[in-house]
Amino acid sequence: MQASPAGGWRANLVIYAALAANLGIAAAKFVAAAITGSSSMLTEGVHSLVDSGNQGLLLYGQHRARRLPDAQHPFGYGRELYFWAFVVAILIFGLGAGVSIYEGWKHIADPEPLHDPTINYIVLAIAIALEGTSWWIALKEFAAGKGELGWWEAVKESKDPTGFVVLFEDSAALAGLLVAGIGIWAAHAWGDPRIDGAASIVIGAILGVVALFLAREAKGLLIGERADLGMIAEIRATLEAEAAITHVNHVRTVHSAPERVFVAISADFADSLSMGEAESLVERMEKTLKTRMPVISSIYIRPEKREDAIDASPIG
């Protein structure tokens, strides 16, 4: 899966759409919660407010990631986007899920009197329309970037967290709206406000599951993930096509940003090559690889005898 450039307009379209939707929805939900005393509506308001902050953090992460390399960070600041994606996951878990479960427990222990739910239904309808629009935009953009990969495989292979973070946030938001609507209806249908509190706990559980998944994916990116397997295969094939290279020992890659890849190569050069010829070969290979794959930001090619190479990686 090809990642969108950090800060690219396609990724930003998804984030801005989600931010606009969540700000409007949060305001409407808090007003409805204040009027009706609904626990699940208050929970949904907190959820939308947290999501709004999350989109702001992703935009901030994109901005920070675009800084140029310097002496302190010679490979650039691209992974800062991964850091802020991890922070977003923690906020969803801590604020979104935590507050939701706490509010639900509080309203079960001390239920508030039921109020006319009409305004809640109106707000939920508006929220579903806005959130659904944001979700559809995120879904379309992610589908456009995943190529022939399956949805789950595309998420696992993606090196740009902005797309799948917003997609999963919006999916969780829609699920939460559905649960909130059912909880409000059931509480009034059966005359038991504790059901509304239970709905808040269910919403918190949904957010917790999504947050843990996003944290795991962001952690992998933050630690450093390999490039696409097709790209690794192309690098190896390019090197093996060179007559002066007798064997490619290994090709190791790591993403330093969604569109920046560092490549380390160990190859066995023909014994007949002089030092000058080997240097020329390395320069030519670096130029060829960067031309074919512009996402390669840095290449390190090490001449090394096949029997001396230690390949700890099952790939390459």
Score class of each variant (00 low, 15 high):
125 A>G: 13
254 V>S: 03
85 A>C: 00
133 T>A: 10
74 P>E: 03
53 G>A: 06
218 A>Q: 02
160 D>I: 00
236 R>A: 12
73 H>A: 00
191 G>C: 10
304 E>V: 03
222 L>K: 05
91 L>I: 01
111 P>F: 09
209 V>P: 05
167 L>R: 07
301 I>S: 10
99 V>N: 06
28 A>Q: 09
221 L>V: 05
92 I>T: 10
196 D>W: 12
54 N>S: 04
312 A>E: 11
199 A>G: 09
227 A>T: 11
177 L>P: 02
221 L>K: 10
32 A>H: 08
137 I>W: 08
96 G>I: 08
311 D>I: 01
305 K>Y: 06
8 G>P: 06
105 W>C: 08
221 L>S: 06
151 W>E: 07
270 A>C: 11
120 N>C: 15
215 A>D: 04
64 R>V: 01
233 A>C: 05
35 I>T: 12
51 D>K: 02
44 E>V: 02
30 F>T: 09
90 I>S: 00
234 E>A: 13
55 Q>S: 09
37 G>R: 09
5 P>M: 11
315 I>F: 11
145 G>H: 14
157 E>Q: 14
247 H>D: 08
289 L>P: 05
104 G>F: 00
14 V>C: 09
223 I>L: 15
161 P>F: 01
47 H>S: 03
216 R>Y: 08
109 A>Y: 05
32 A>D: 11
36 T>K: 11
29 K>Q: 14
15 I>L: 14
251 V>L: 04
107 H>P: 02
14 V>M: 09
7 G>P: 06
107 H>C: 04
81 L>P: 03
191 G>Q: 13
185 W>D: 10
121 Y>T: 06
277 E>T: 10
285 M>K: 07
171 S>T: 15
149 L>P: 02
304 E>M: 12
142 F>G: 07
279 E>P: 00
291 T>R: 14
245 I>A: 08
209 V>S: 09
244 A>R: 15
29 K>G: 04
106 K>C: 00
135 W>Q: 07
96 G>C: 07
79 R>Q: 08
106 K>Q: 12
294 P>F: 14
98 G>S: 02
226 R>A: 15
42 L>K: 06
138 A>D: 11
194 R>L: 05
173 A>R: 02
283 E>A: 15
297 S>H: 07
88 V>C: 02
5 P>D: 13
155 V>S: 04
127 A>K: 01
149 L>I: 00
55 Q>V: 05
12 N>S: 12
84 W>D: 00
266 S>M: 02
169 E>R: 00
144 A>Y: 08
7 G>H: 07
82 Y>L: 01
118 T>R: 12
171 S>G: 15
